[in-house]
Design a protein around this nucleic acid. Structure first.
Lengths: 201, 201
DNA sequence: ACCTGGCCGTGACAAATGTCCCGGGTGCCT
DNA sequence: AGGCACCCGGGACATTTGTCACGGCCAGGT
């Protein structure tokens, strides 16, 4: 029996996946969580063989949780399941030690098979996505540029960002200008969008 | 047997829901589509008793499709299933003649029961959401203010918006300024965010 | 010891944005 | 006929944003 942990914030999706995977004769869902910061605790208790993690989770990113699992529950293989096949996500997932990366498009039938593959030690990745990730190159943004961009979502003003990062307004504008340049965009909003698209952020 | 049409863009979610609902003894999934502009055609062919529609769909909004169905396939009851329980969405769903409104949180078990309820002529709505929709009041934005806001997502400049709406830049700025005032925000981005949050847009 | 790159800041400037006036036109309701 | 709301535009103005040039600090690599 493959012991599976399932982390997904949308209740209906989580329930549906749990039911479907539980119907497989060789899979048993031993833990379900809806928040990223509950993953490690649940894994320590339930001792799953495979963790199926969404990326966008409240509390803690599934990618960060994957890195945590590698340290704290090394026997557990990680399979990332996400809505967005962003190159940067895939790259970060691999760096965090994930064994597989699936997007929520594509048929459900693949899911159980992917779980079995990662347990056999194989790596499962959509080939097209892998190519995109390689061709896109790594994240060119520095840490602070990322911070500034991330803080500027939802229409925060320069003053807001400066306050939230404890920086001067001039500095923030320099970082943002730099990020706009690196993303090849015309303003904050486009830069945020572009960075999101790539999975930087 | 309840004949069901399922419209949902995320392949895995669609597949999972189809399998789960198909396992119910009294439900048969007679059509699955992944785009909003395929809903009416599919319904005309499959003649479902109930249509389970996501809102955010490529091609055409599930809310618009619900209005279409009321006109073209009036026997078919509409049940809206959405990620975001936004007051404006609920309001628009009701105006489009939907018989029910579910959010994708909450247990899958409710789903089949909700389908049966709408078929019996009952209306299914989360009470808390209904209260929020009533207390929020109707959409205060005029048609053009909505257009201008919608066109300003993703960092379009005033010039871009003016071009895409065939308006002068002055006009666009006036509309945006008005929308910013009505939403009680400080700039475009906040206004867009606030309007989205409410389900205006 | 030097160079590089990230980090943090200032000042000045041009461009974009948001606000407040104003005008005219239309259609709808009373 | 008047009032009202929406549509469309112009002009002036203050504010915000984005760019550029320029400092200094610190860590790492050669």
């Amino acid at each position: 029996m493959i012991r599976l942990l399932l982390a997904e914030d949308q209740g209906m999706m989580r329930g549906a996946l749990a039911l479907l995977l539980g119907m497989e004769h060789d899979i048993e869902v031993v833990a379900q969580v809806g928040r990223g910061d509950e993953i490690v605790d649940a894994a320590l208790v339930a001792r799953p063989d495979v963790a199926l993690l969404d990326i966008e989770l409240p509390g803690r990113s599934g990618l960060d949780a994957a890195a945590d699992l590698r340290d704290e529950v090394p026997d557990c293989r990680v399979l990332i399941l996400t809505t967005f096949g962003r190159p940067g996500y895939l790259r970060r997932a691999m760096e965090a030690g994930a064994a597989g990366f699936l997007v929520k498009d594509g048929p459900v039938e693949d899911l159980a098979e992917a779980v079995r593959q990662v347990l056999r030690g194989e790596t499962v990745i959509d080939p097209a996505l892998a190519a995109a990730a390689l061709s896109a190159g790594p994240n060119p943004l520095t840490g602070r540029e990322r911070d500034a961009l991330a803080a500027s979502v939802d229409g925060a003003t320069i003053a807001d960002i400066a306050a939230s990062l404890h920086l001067s307004e001039s500095t923030v504008r320099n970082y943002l200008s730099s990020a706009i340049g690196k993303t090849g965009t015309r303003n904050r909003m486009e830069a945020v969008r572009a960075a999101r698209q790539q999975g930087w952020l």
